[in-house]
Amino acid sequence: MTEVAMGHAGIVLGLEGSRLARNNADWHRLLELAALARTLIMDENGVYDPAYFNDRMLLGLKGTMSEAELHILKSRLQGGILNKARRGELEMPLPIGLVYTPDARVVLDPDRQIQDTVRLLFDTFRETGSACAVVRRLRGEKILFPRRIRRGIGKGDVLWSEIDHSRVLQILHNPRYAGAFAYGRTRTAYNAKLKSVQLRVARSDWQVLIPEAHEGYISWAEYERNQTTLEQNAAGFSPGLRGRMPRQGSGLLQGRLLCGRCGARMRVHYEPFEGRLRPYYVCNEAVVRHAGKHCQWVRGAPVDDAVSALLLEAMAPAAIDVALAVQQEITQRVEQATALRGAQLQRARYEAELAADAT
């Protein structure tokens, strides 16, 4: 381009110029400079002078056809991928706990420690209904979670580390653990810095969704219940859901008491009284939303006492059975955690022996 612009080139020779013409901006920039510098262009079909209208129009038409050819090639490749995905035969990177067999079937990871750890995550969420509770339990019991290296040095190896909240959400939202094949869950976009980012796509807009396509850790019905639970747990991020989850403080009915006048959800306000913080249930929806006045407020202690009495009266007959069930559940959790820690210790010893033999 520099030599053409400086007038040092009399002719530009090229084979398969359509490859350059697939980028129409570069192609037309070359034609414009060649026309100004009176430089000829030659390909395997002939010699052209961009300074003449007919030759320039022909070269521009070739560039447009070449760019369209590139679009057609991409469309055919994407169409082939989509058709394979619609049959559920497209091989995609699997999350931890699932692997491909030599005949391209998806099965549970044969490593029992990985299987038990993934099952523990879903069992804990089934019991607690909270991703934060899952993280607290796994970290509290010193249970490490597996992660497979996707690229670079050690590709395919499994690393064990502490799990975090985002990883738990990623696993709970992944339909592959429910035995479903999904394609089109994300799309690529560009931010203000022209860097590619992955955006989540609503389930209704997924291109392919095939439930029960392979073996999974949970059923499809449980997966949908988990999604509903996660949406309800998103308190504080949506005006319709804010306040349903309990927060800090001594108020018993925080986030669950409705105003008898306007029907809005009442908030808890604490005031110091006799050296202690006393709860008050306040309906300030109009104040927050519309800069209005308080609808009403009520002391929290009498309401909490009345609800506590009703709750204890209803739960008293089954208190012993509940206590026994809780004790049995705690015992099972301890045994399960002990077995997983034992498996982790055995794996560490095995890796240490391999390292010692290698040296």
Results as ranks from 00 to 15, higher is better:
5 A>H: 05
9 A>N: 01
9 A>P: 00
13 L>R: 14
13 L>W: 10
23 N>T: 12
48 Y>L: 03
57 M>S: 11
58 L>E: 10
64 T>Y: 03
64 T>V: 15
67 E>P: 01
71 H>N: 11
74 K>R: 14
75 S>F: 10
76 R>I: 13
88 G>L: 12
94 L>S: 03
97 G>F: 08
115 Q>F: 12
115 Q>C: 10
122 F>S: 02
125 F>S: 05
126 R>Y: 03
136 R>M: 12
147 R>T: 08
154 G>T: 09
154 G>S: 10
164 D>G: 11
172 L>C: 03
175 P>V: 02
191 N>Y: 02
194 L>C: 08
197 V>M: 14
198 Q>N: 14
205 D>M: 07
207 Q>P: 00
208 V>F: 04
223 Y>S: 02
226 N>Q: 14
226 N>D: 09
227 Q>W: 02
228 T>C: 04
229 T>G: 07
230 L>E: 05
230 L>S: 01
231 E>P: 01
240 G>S: 12
249 G>S: 04
250 S>G: 06
250 S>E: 07
265 R>G: 06
266 M>S: 02
267 R>E: 07
273 F>W: 13
281 Y>Q: 06
290 H>F: 11
294 H>N: 14
313 E>T: 11
313 E>C: 12
326 V>Q: 14
336 Q>T: 12
344 Q>I: 01
349 R>V: 05
355 A>G: 05
357 D>F: 14
357 D>C: 11
